[in-house]
Amino acid sequence: MKFKRLLIATGLSVFAATSVMASSVPHAEPWTAKEWLDAKRSMPQGDIDKGKLLAEQGYCYSCHGVEGNNPTQSTPSLAGQNAVYTYKMLSDYKSGRFYVDHKSHVMVHLMQYYDQQQMADIAAYYAAQPLPHGEYISKDVEVDPTIIRLVAKGDTSRMIVPCASCHGAHGEGGMNETPALTGMSPRMFIRQMNAYKDGTRHNDVNSGMAQFTKDLTDEEIQALADYYAQLKPRGAQ
């Protein structure tokens, strides 16, 4: 709706974002901490080989790249991603908890055809692939020291905890369902941060992520995006 108003305000042709048959998107209440813990406990053990087959047959590569390594910027690479995060995201698409805008449509519909075991298999397969890196670095990116400080130490004046405390010192993710951020496309990063900020993304338990985004400036978000795009996974050359 915001999108539509914005277009009208700027006098551009009006093509409503509502024209995507939104009626068919499932609706679920946001996670409570207990519900998510229960869901996580009942996550099946994933089978990597079955997951590989599902990824190939399910046309995942079409958008997410060969073996989950995608160099374009509108869909994420999945290789090396934390299995719990991938599993949660697939579940959240299925339940409608993750429906940011019309771009979520493909995944929301696709996931209706997958069960928990299959989601766990796909998540296990992608988690077993090496984390990609270095795909989005533009040559002149220089990391601002204040951003390194924000990542490593946080900002107590704004109650922002260090990014690294959940997402890892090398951005490899892993604390609970927190995703790997290393090597992520900057556009993807910014889009997600803004979606947390404006509330369109709210599948984080207890606003665990959204709360930190409210006080970040656009410049900081951009700088964090650039930082994670250039970060190397542990042990990478």
Binding site: C63, P71, T72, S74, T75, D101, K103, H105, E135
Partner: peptide, 20 residues
């Protein structure tokens, strides 16, 4: 177009585009 499911192509490095 940066806000649709099909990815934007502008600015893709030459070798990446060719590989894709």
């Amino acid at each position: 177009f940066y806000d649709e499911s099909m990815p934007p192509l502008a600015g893709i490095p030459r070798d990446v585009f060719i590989k894709l």
